[in-house]
């Protein structure tokens, strides 16, 4: 198994993003499931995004693992959202007769983050905290509550 076939789990704010590799072996798919659950246990995220945008072949085994993983994440108290299904994969999955029943789906990672309640303002807060108070916003459209902007935000 080469590195490109192995799974990647990253954390964005308090959300885990698991990127499924495009052409994995069954073992690689199983490994990613294990990795997601381990990281879930360690980081206690509010949710997990299962990114299948690289996946070009979603067969019944792969679909079952994704459904199962989503179910396990929920048993552990998080919310799982599948994102990025390609049109050809969606057509094939529908014809094969496996919808991802009882799995939440989203069009994009941004959309999934929104569904998980991660807002841009949260993101700005996190960014502001990490930069201490160095930043002064100039964007008139910025409604971030943390900004002491000279324009007098409401």
């Amino acid at each position: 198994m080469t590195a490109s076939e192995s799974a990647a789990v990253t954390q964005v704010y308090d959300v885990l993003i698991a990127a499924f590799p495009g052409r994995p072996t069954d073992q690689a798919v199983d490994n990613l499931q294990q990795e997601v659950l381990n990281q879930m246990n360690e980081t206690d995220p509010r949710g997990v995004i299962l990114d299948i945008s690289e996946v070009t072949t979603l067969d019944s085994f792969f679909a079952r693992v994704i459904s199962e993983t989503a179910g396990m994440v929920e048993l552990m108290g998080g919310r799982a959202i599948v994102v990025g299904m390609r049109p050809s994969v969606a057509i094939t999955a529908a014809e094969l007769g496996f919808g991802l029943d009882s799995v939440d789906t989203a069009r994009s990672t941004d959309h999934a983050l929104l569904m998980l309640g991660v807002t841009v303002e949260d993101a700005d807060d996190v960014a502001a905290e990490s930069e201490s108070e160095a930043a002064t916003t100039h964007d008139d459209g910025d409604r971030s509550g943390s900004a002491l902007s000279p324009g007098g935000g409401r």
Binding site: T57, S88, I91, T92
Partner: peptide
Amino acid sequence: ILRARQEARAVAEEIGFSTTDVTRIVT
């Protein structure tokens, strides 16, 4: 199994199947 998928994908693409048909075949 992975090799079988890859080979089938390459052949199907060379024959000129659409992306959706390639996906059906490889699946």
